[in-house]
């Protein structure tokens, strides 16, 4: 049982929870994720850890409502508990001084990007960040990202905030302008696919953090498998970060849709049940 200590609503579908998890708060590093199960009927879902407070013994999760499990989770309030939280899982981000790093985050992908940027900044890198979302209210963690970045560019699809355009437009401007040594891209699979194609044109080594379907999260089930450089890899134990230029994003998109029909049906039934 892990108690919710704080809750902040970022937008209609995006919520931040601060959860009690003392051991995980001490052992987690940038790039790690947890698996959570909301209640005894719940499924196991992976969520990247956006940060931790070792003194308070808490971890920070940012959740976007996409189906039944995330809807149940964001409905919980301060004082409620999440039944199971296990982690930290996955390989921690390999952090080193590369020079100038272009960090691109799309939507809730900005959450897992935050601790990585923090690590990269501490390692002495110059950080140029591009945050992107459909509209202004979906840009999250802007202040913290601005604080850690040497330069921050905001892109919105509808132009309601920052520059109008896609994340790739913002990235391309930077890549055309100066030499970038490393890029980190995190967001929806489709965004990472095009972000990776963009940096490939400039031959910039690029890392993506993948969020696939998982059950156990410890390397047992193989639900998270994807193809990287022609080889099958397990996101939960080999990742979640991979060389973005080697990832078969089309296959990843296909595999993310594996339970689409069931998920939609279950979500409709869930909405009926709470109506």
């Amino acid at each position: 049982m892990n108690k919710i200590i704080e809750k902040e609503i970022f937008s209609e579908n995006v919520v931040q929870l601060i959860l009690e998890a003392p051991e995980i708060s001490r052992s987690r590093k940038p790039g790690h994720f947890v698996i959570i199960r909301v209640d005894d009927k719940g499924e196991r879902i992976p969520l990247t850890i956006a940060g931790a407070d070792t003194k308070k013994g808490t971890i920070r999760l940012i959740i976007q409502k996409v189906g039944v499990s995330s809807a149940k989770l964001i409905k919980l309030n301060v004082g409620d508990s999440v039944l199971d939280v296990v982690g930290p899982l996955g390989q921690a981000t390999h952090i080193e001084k590369a020079g100038t790093v272009l960090c691109a985050g799309g939507g809730v992908g900005i959450a897992p990007l935050l601790p990585i940027v923090e690590g990269l900044k501490q390692a002495g890198n110059r950080i140029v960040s591009v945050l992107a979302a459909r509209s202004k209210d979906l840009i999250i963690l802007e202040d913290e990202m601005r604080h850690l970045s040497d330069e921050l560019i905001v892109m919105t699809d509808d132009g309601s905030y920052g520059n109008k355009g896609l994340v790739t437009h913002g990235m391309e401007d930077v890549l055309n302008r100066e030499k970038i040594d490393l890029s980190v891209v995190i967001g929806p699979a489709i965004m990472m696919k095009f972000a990776a194609l963009t940096t490939k044109k400039f031959n910039v080594p690029t890392m993506a953090s993948l969020n696939t379907i998982m059950v156990d999260g410890t390397g047992m089930c193989g639900a998270c498998r994807i193809t990287v450089g022609g080889k099958t890899k397990f996101v939960c134990v080999d990742g979640p970060e991979f060389d973005a230029h080697q990832v078969d994003f089309d296959q990843m998109l296909q595999r993310l849709g594996a339970y689409k029909d069931q998920e939609m049906k279950a979500y409709k039934e869930y909405l009926k049940s709470i109506a």
Partner: peptide, 8 residues
């Protein structure tokens, strides 16, 4: 919910 080698 404790993974030895990870949580502890």
């Amino acid at each position: 919910d404790v993974i030895i080698g990870k949580t502890l």
